[in-house]
Design a protein around this nucleic acid. Structure first.
Length: 209
DNA sequence: GCTTACCACGATG
DNA sequence: CATCGTGGTAAGC
């Protein structure tokens, strides 16, 4: 039976089969948003950029890599949801995340990211302590978050409370990323110069699964 | 298989 | 500023 992959990991029903993937776009304020969605409305990946071709290439490549499927272009409301998240709005409904291509370690990290409140930040070391790992390993996982904006990896900053890095699709990313800073600002984070005030720091509970 | 290089880090000096 | 410890990954044999 071709084109049928078993889903792995604990983010969703492990017995379901994956047959097709859809790719949907939305645009707002000169920014393009793309979502990769499976046939049961699980979000497999997302991306945003000022260049539609860039996110399309990225999501098609990701689809081929993790599922060996060429996605079909569809309409999907997740793309509009993504534009609202980019605007700093609170999500109105939960989005089911597809676990394909996600390691167990990544899943542990993303479970913490999902708990960071809007308007707050945490750092790599605190996440590492919470899941009994190391800060560099957490950085690796955060940097490979397949669902930017839906899973708020932009709320993780260096321990010195600067904004830190936010790598876009294939650009290396740089210190004090203006994109990351804007995302945080729209969610209510205020800055003292280049730094985030300590009152915005949120600490994950230790031993959270 | 195993070994290395690479990192969106952190602590120390 | 520099260096090192650190843990997970991917790429290289």
């Amino acid at each position: 039976m071709p084109n049928v992959l078993k889903r792995t990991g604990g983010l969703q029903n492990a017995t379901s089969k994956l047959n097709s993937l859809g790719l949907a776009f939305a645009a707002k304020d000169k920014t393009w948003f793309g979502v990769l969605v499976d046939d049961q409305d699980y979000l497999v990946a997302s991306a945003f950029s000022d260049n539609r071709r860039v996110i399309k290439n990225h999501l098609v490549r990701y689809s081929l890599k993790v599922a060996h499927i060429s996605p079909k272009e569809v309409k999907h409301s997740f793309a509009e949801d993504m534009a609202k998240l980019h605007n700093g709005e609170a999500p109105k409904r939960p989005v089911k995340l597809g676990s394909i291509g996600i390691s167990e370690f990544q899943e542990k990290v993303y479970e913490v990211l999902k708990k960071i409140p809007r308007g707050r930040v945490t750092n790599y070391g605190l996440i590492a302590k919470a899941i009994k790992s190391g800060p560099r390993a957490v950085g690796n996982a955060v940097g490979s978050n397949p669902w930017p904006l839906f899973v708020p990896c932009h709320r993780v900053v260096p321990s010195d409370m600067t904004v830190g890095n936010y790598s876009m699709i294939n650009s290396p990313g740089h210190e004090n990323s203006p994109v990351k800073k804007t995302l945080l600002y729209r969610e209510g984070v205020r800055f003292q110069g280049e730094k985030i005030p300590p009152s915005a720091l949120w600490s994950p509970a230790r031993f959270s699964s």
